[in-house]
């Protein structure tokens, strides 16, 4: 199928991009990698007046670091995130999860920032950003602001970015200490979206879990951070304890019932997969 007509601008600096977005008005859309947006346009599910293409803004690409934080440009492609040595070193959970996004050709175009700003709760990376306490850096006409991941995802396909703001970068605190990570993605065929995904980062001390961070994919209208389970996992030193602590992971959640699965099955999967992810991350795989 064929996209509807729209105007197109390709700014070359972030400042120009913010200005272009402002000029284009409220029915404009930002074009990042386009791997979700272009199919949506082809199916004529959206009718933007203007696309502001960020792919020619070099300052939005690439991975850098400061003392405690990894800074990933919003337009960094998935394939570059996967291969980036800084990400592998300081946020291996992100490398692992990104490698499961779609397929190689899509990962060559799709971007980290685009995936987060799209805010599909079935997307893999939002749960990772949440689990890693990422901060999202937004640039707008009023300047720059930093939004914690927990405040960023508001609802299905809805974020706290205002229409005139552009996601510029994602700041991820480096993991320090003996962390293990795991992204458990459950889908019916390799290419499909996750029915449920679990991102887990676990720090162990003396064979027991000292700290656990978990993000859940597709267990609600936003990615979910099950804080009570994270707390309950502290001190767990074997698989049985992990399984017991994870039993409550779906409590209070309202996962969707859709073509992919019914809510109760998602809740069950979340329990099983969280236990698996945590146990694996903690080196307690049976």
């Amino acid at each position: 199928m064929i996209p509807p007509e729209f105007d197109y601008v390709a700014p070359t600096t972030l400042a120009e991009a913010v200005a272009a977005l402002g000029e284009a008005g409220e029915d404009a859309k930002i074009l990042a990698g386009g791997q979700s947006l272009i199919p949506v346009l082809r199916l004529r599910l959206a009718f933007p007046t203007t696309l502001v293409d960020l792919s020619r803004v070099p300052e939005l690409r690439g991975v850098s670091e400061d003392a405690d934080t990894l800074v990933i440009g919003a337009m960094t492609k998935h394939s570059d995130v996967v291969e980036d040595p800084l990400v592998q070193q300081h946020a291996p959970l992100l490398s692992e999860a990104t490698a499961t996004v779609a397929d190689p050709a899509v990962r060559h175009r799709g971007t980290f920032g685009g995936a987060l700003a799209h805010a599909d709760p079935a997307g893999d990376l939002a749960a990772v950003a949440l689990a890693l306490d990422a901060e999202l850096v937004a640039e707008g006409p009023g300047g720059r602001r930093t939004i914690p991941a927990r405040d960023f995802f508001l609802d299905y396909l809805e974020t706290s970015l205002s229409p005139d703001e552009i996601l510029a970068a994602v700041r991820i605190p480096k993991l320090r200490g003996s962390w293990g990570v795991r992204y458990e993605k459950f889908n019916r065929v390799a290419q499909a979206w996750a029915i449920v995904g679990v991102a887990a980062a676990v720090r162990t001390e003396g064979g027991a879990i000292a700290e656990a961070r978990i993000g859940l994919t597709n267990m609600g209208s936003t990615p979910v951070r099950p804080a009570a389970v994270e707390a309950a996992l502290v001190g767990a030193s074997d698989r049985a304890a992990v399984v017991a602590a994870c039993a409550a992971v779906a409590e209070g959640l309202t996962p969707p019932s859709d073509l992919g699965a019914q809510a109760d099955y998602r809740a069950h999967l979340a329990r099983v997969l969280t236990a698996r992810a945590v146990a694996h991350a903690a080196g307690m795989s049976s």
Binding site: G34, P39, R42, L43, H108, R109
Partner: peptide, 22 residues
Amino acid sequence: TSSCGACTVDIDGESVKSCSVL
């Protein structure tokens, strides 16, 4: 829906689904 990959081409050294690129 950029699902099937029949349209894959190489752009600047990377495989890409040409139906999902303007």
